[in-house]
Computed example of a mutant assay.
Amino acid sequence: MKIAVMGMGVAGSYLMARLKNSNHEVIGYERNREENHDSICAWGTIKPVLTEFCKKVDRDFNDFLIHDGKNMHVKMNNDVKFDIGLHGMCTYDKLALIKDFIKDSKIIYGEAPKLEDLEKEYDMIVDCTGFGRAYLPKMKDDFFLPTYEYKVEYEDGVPYDDFYIEPFPGMSGYFWYFPLGEKWAHIGAGDYNKQHIKATDDFLKKHGGKVLKTKGRPIRLATPDRCKPYYSGKVVGVGESIGTVYALLGEGIIPSMQCVDIFVENMNDFAAYEKAIEKHYKVYAKVFNFVRAKIHKDFSFIKALPDFLSIFFYMKKNQDRFGMDIKISDLLKVAKA
């Protein structure tokens, strides 16, 4: 087949690498010019998981590793502070890995062709445009958070030696500090109640630092069950365009790459792809319902207890995938804040 992959973010670039040695003719499109091609949102992930993804396309994740986390410092809005032990959570040069994934592929930069033009030329169009969902039908019931982030340089020492987060009241989002080596960090926040810019600026005023880059965009929290259709005609969605973000953490890198693997296994059968997506991301709906109820102040812990326990057991079972110690006491502190 002749395939167009639209969007060279995490999902699109990894898909290009996965299909590089296939029998298909695959061409990538990135709406930004090559010199402006960038990676939105912080560069945090789980080292063992990314190592396995990279092995599938003959890359060494260690070439892109920046910081190996040991502890995540958490401060709740009621001034409760605690640390979560980390086992694999890290920061990496996300943009460098994206560019490495596509370095040997044909990429057309600075263009966002119309769907009707793509349909004339290609047998399949893969929508990896993330939140934009530019080529799939519009969703009926979207749900997202606005986010804002600075890349900051600290000449006189970094304010934290490891990951640091501050969840907002009612689980409406959180502020993050992700270390990027000896004197750099990503600081930013996402918040349904739109306090994300103030929280980021307040941290900058308190701790100083030189702003090197500013980014902002929405992040989709609506889960795959809310993001149908996954395909329409020649178009099929992969990654955040069909809701592959873990709502409790706002994490989309690993879920989007998992989505790519599921797609590659089922790319000749869209119906089978849909079933595989529904199965893999089933628990995401429970996570989303839990978070949304907190945000909308329509939350009863008694009613939410079954979902809470499902989320806990899912994360505990997959503790290595989340790269941290999963303790029910820590989840309760967040849930009850």
Rank of each mutant, 00 (worst) to 15 (best):
T45Q: 00
W43R: 15
G110W: 02
K94I: 12
Y281C: 12
K106I: 15
H67T: 04
L249D: 02
F178L: 12
F53L: 06
A42D: 11
G323N: 01
Y148N: 09
V238G: 04
M139T: 10
I302G: 14
I326H: 13
L221T: 13
F168N: 00
R292D: 05
T200M: 01
G12V: 13
D142I: 14
F53E: 03
D60M: 11
E116M: 03
A96G: 06
L95P: 12
V49A: 07
S39Y: 14
K234Q: 05
V158H: 09
K316S: 14
S256W: 08
N289L: 14
I328D: 00
D320W: 05
E116Q: 11
S300N: 12
F178M: 12
I3H: 09
N289H: 06
I242Q: 01
K198A: 11
V236L: 01
G233Q: 01
T51P: 06
D161G: 10
F290H: 10
V236P: 01
A199M: 01
G233L: 08
Q258Y: 14
F144N: 06
S256Y: 07
I253W: 04
N268P: 14
M6W: 05
A293W: 04
G181K: 11
W184G: 07
F53V: 15
I326G: 06
K198T: 09
S39D: 13
I254M: 15
Y273A: 12
G190H: 07
F313L: 08
I253G: 03
V26D: 02
E25N: 14
F178S: 12
K99E: 00
A276N: 10
V291M: 14
T147H: 10
W184Q: 09
E30N: 04
D58E: 09
H186M: 07
D325N: 15
A285Y: 08
D307E: 06
Y231A: 08
V57D: 10
K120P: 03
T244Y: 11
Y92N: 14
L249K: 12
E25M: 06
V238M: 03
K279N: 13
E25C: 05
P179M: 09
A112H: 13
T51K: 05
I40M: 07
D320G: 05
P224Q: 00
D127F: 07
G181F: 03
A134Y: 10
K114V: 08
G243Y: 00
G85S: 08
V49Y: 04
P255K: 11
V26G: 07
K2N: 04
D100A: 15
V126I: 04
V264W: 13
I219F: 06
Y281P: 08
D307R: 11
F322N: 03
A189Y: 00
I40S: 06
K286R: 15
E149N: 04
P167N: 00
E274G: 15
I98D: 03
V158L: 06
I108G: 08
I46F: 02
V211C: 01
K286D: 12
H196D: 00
T45A: 14
K327P: 06
